[in-house]
Amino acid sequence: MAQYTRTRLDASFAALSDATRRGVLEQLGRADASISDLAEKFHMTLTGMKKHVGVLEQAGLVTTEKIGRVRTCKLGLRRLEEEAAWIERYRQLWDARFDALDEVVEELKRKEKVHGRKKRE
């Protein structure tokens, strides 16, 4: 199970690492679109957009349906809950580390105020 989750996270973060793919997700969040429409909107070739959509589809973030000659894209059923939980764990870890650093800095400021700054000779 852990390997499946890791693989899924890898696919999701790889898909989300590209600005065009994030833009496609934003666009599909507003309305379904054909690959041709997406390619035009993002000023790229149909082949290039197909590759981006393929990466999103492999990650489960987008689904496509071909009707006739038109392949329509829409958001997938995945809600990125696992990815959000992973990010939250690391956010909490870094918050704790920064809080500890703040305490050290405040302690140093208190000591400096009490003892005065030592002059360099």
Rank of each mutant, 00 (worst) to 15 (best):
M44I: 00
L75S: 01
S34C: 06
A33M: 08
T64W: 03
K50Q: 06
C73F: 15
G54H: 02
L61C: 06
L77R: 08
K74V: 04
V55C: 10
T72R: 09
V53K: 09
V53C: 09
K41W: 09
T72N: 11
L61Y: 09
R78N: 06
L80P: 01
R69D: 15
V62C: 05
T47Q: 13
M44E: 01
G76D: 04
R69W: 15
A39Y: 00
S34W: 08
V62Y: 08
E82N: 13
K51W: 06
A33C: 05
Q58H: 14
G60V: 13
E81P: 00
T63C: 13
R79K: 15
V53I: 14
M49R: 01
M49F: 01
V55L: 09
T63G: 07
I35C: 07
E81C: 00
G54K: 10
S36G: 07
H43Y: 09
V55F: 06
T47I: 07
C73L: 14
V70W: 00
E65M: 09
S34H: 08
K51H: 04
G76T: 14
C73K: 11
K51N: 10
G60F: 14
I67R: 15
K66A: 10
L75C: 03
L46A: 12
A33Q: 02
A59Y: 13
A59T: 14
L46Y: 15
M49P: 01
G68W: 12
K74I: 05
T45M: 03
K41M: 13
L46D: 05
L77I: 14
G68V: 14
K51I: 09
E82A: 12
G76M: 04
F42W: 01
T72W: 04
V70Y: 02
Q58S: 07
M44F: 02
A59C: 04
H43C: 04
K41L: 09
A33V: 02
G76W: 13
E40V: 15
G60E: 12
E57Q: 12
V53M: 05
R79M: 12
L75K: 01
H43I: 05
Q58V: 12
G68D: 15
D37R: 10
T45V: 04
E81H: 02
R79F: 06
K50R: 08
L38C: 07
V53N: 04
L38V: 05
G60R: 14
A59L: 11
K50C: 04
R79I: 10
K74D: 01
C73M: 12
G48E: 05
L56P: 05
D37P: 03
H52Y: 02
V53Q: 10
L77S: 11
E81I: 05
D37Q: 12
L38M: 06
F42L: 00
A59D: 10
T47R: 12
S36E: 01
L56W: 05
E82F: 08
C73R: 13
L38T: 07
R79V: 14
R69I: 15
V53D: 09
L80I: 02
D37Y: 11
E57F: 07
R79L: 07
H43N: 10
C73Y: 15
I67L: 11
L56A: 02
